[in-house]
């Protein structure tokens, strides 16, 4: 039985329309973020180098943690960028749809590992600042930022990618039925 009935023709049209638009939008966003991250990493590396050359101190560890977080951040962005970089239309329709399902999942296992690799050094960094200065503002702002960031990411994914993924899954089910 056909998955798109007469009533859902509009839904089908939306899927076709949104799939490419969302892929393009994601690709542009990731490009911008990767440029910002790369510029940041250069600053952090220079900052770490300056501190280490003065002799190892508490500040060096925190800037080193910041550098590790940046490296993981770059890897995370690169991994996401690769997914949206170029879509191969020469593969069969079933593979194209499978790639779409994979591309629009919230986070792959590899991305979760990279995210953990980024969050833990950032947490250490904020804790060290708290220990050094006695002020909890950086720790609180990091935790708040992380919470807001995940909520925004979840909202965007829910609005843009989830419906596309669901429809691609339906098309796959129809093809495999």
């Amino acid at each position: 039985m056909s998955i798109f009935t007469h009533k859902s023709n509009n839904l089908e049209h939306n899927f076709i329309d949104k799939l490419k638009k969302t892929d393009r939008k994601h690709s542009i966003i990731i490009k911008i973020v990767s440029v910002i991250f790369t510029l940041n990493s250069v600053v952090f590396i220079q900052y770490t180098y300056q501190h280490v050359s003065d002799g190892i101190q508490m500040e060096d560890i925190s800037s080193f943690m910041l550098m590790i977080a940046t490296v993981f951040g770059i890897l995370l962005i690169w991994d996401t960028f690769q997914k949206f970089r170029q879509i191969d239309y020469g593969q069969s329709t079933i593979l194209l749809m499978k790639a779409c399902v994979d591309r629009h999942r919230f986070a792959s296992r590899k991305q979760i590992y990279l995210l953990v690799g980024m969050v833990i050094p950032l947490l250490i960094f904020s804790s060290l600042i708290y220990k050094n200065t006695g002020s909890s503002s950086s720790l609180i702002s990091f935790l708040t930022g992380a919470a807001i960031g995940s909520m925004v990411a979840m909202f965007i994914w829910n609005r843009d990618s989830k419906p596309l993924r669901e429809h691609a899954k339906k098309v796959l089910n129809e093809l495999e039925a």
Partner: peptide
């Protein structure tokens, strides 16, 4: 493959219906 896959995901600018 390329042609039908493009047609499947083509952003409709002229026609509103698939």
């Amino acid at each position: 493959r390329v042609t039908v896959n493009t047609a499947l995901t083509h952003v409709r600018k002229v026609s509103k219906e698939n």
